[in-house]
Design a protein around this nucleic acid. Structure first.
Lengths: 148, 148
DNA sequence: TATTTTAATGCAATTGAATTGCATCTATGC
DNA sequence: GCATAGATGCAATTCAATTGCATTAAAATA
């Protein structure tokens, strides 16, 4: 897990380094799972205006600094991109896992496999989301069963 | 492409066959692509109340009659399930394609490949959406270039 | 077929995500 | 330090989705 330096990232992408932008980057990179827009807003809502937060997140996605995972509820989730990402192409093509219990979105180590697309369709990116019960929530269910 | 009989489907699923439910099934099955909630609402909004439409769609998803594809904008899209689906398990596990130009969602013939999930995570379903430019929109771009 | 029961629909109101326009402020280049 | 391009904050708005409740319609049964 390489350390994330917000100012370095902003410089590299020719973005003004405002305290709001730094704050958002810190918050996203502090998490091991992707973080949802509502959660981010709850955490940062007193420091950063809702609209500013939306704009910062969109800028980061456009620049390839973070990637957006839309979960099966339609909620946007954000995670730091691997260093190979750029505004031209996102290389966040690993599998994501969306827990139906806690709703968290996890970035898994598994890479998205090559798939053949019907002729004529031009795929630019692939989103592969597994939906089920995450590690933590599986454990909890087990504990509940054990103690009942 | 097997013919869809709304009343037969409703009977099989022990659902009252109201004209609203029949209407929704007809509309979804009339399309070769998945149909989005906003589009459905525009088409049926004068015959069926918004809330009823939402409820019917949720019932159909629960029963395994239609499947819901959440596209990369977070918009819900609906398509008829293959006959193998049930409320216990959805077998709509083919690849979807979301066009960034026309926003349509296509069900492709390609099946979702087997993937290995990190130990401890229990996957129940997989959503694989390719994002790019669809067949129709690719053609149009080509025409525009050709005539310019 | 009429009546009862059960479930679906329609309506009003509300919630929450996301966007737009515009005035104000601030980081950075000179 | 000053100018300015670009970022932020605020008010208002749009649109998807949900909830509670009264009304209506389908099915069960008498």
């Amino acid at each position: 897990m390489s350390k994330v330096d917000p100012i370095e990232i902003l410089k590299r992408n020719k973005l003004k380094h405002t305290k709001q932008r730094i704050r958002v980057l810190e918050d996203i990179s502090a998490n091991t799972t992707a973080i949802s827009q509502p959660t981010l807003e709850k955490k940062l809502g007193k420091e950063i205006d809702r609209v500013t937060l939306y704009r910062i997140l969109n800028t980061y996605v456009d620049k390839g600094i973070v990637h957006r995972i839309v979960d099966l509820n339609g909620t946007a989730n954000y995670a730091i991109c691997s260093s190979a990402c750029s505004s031209e192409q996102h290389h966040d093509e690993h599998v994501h896992f969306n827990c139906r219990n806690c709703n968290k979105v996890f970035c898994l180590a598994t890479k998205v496999p090559e798939i053949s697309i019907t002729a004529g369709f031009k795929a630019e990116s692939i989103s592969l989301i597994a939906y089920g019960v995450c590690k933590e929530c599986s454990k909890q269910t087990y504990e509940v069963l054990k103690n009942s």
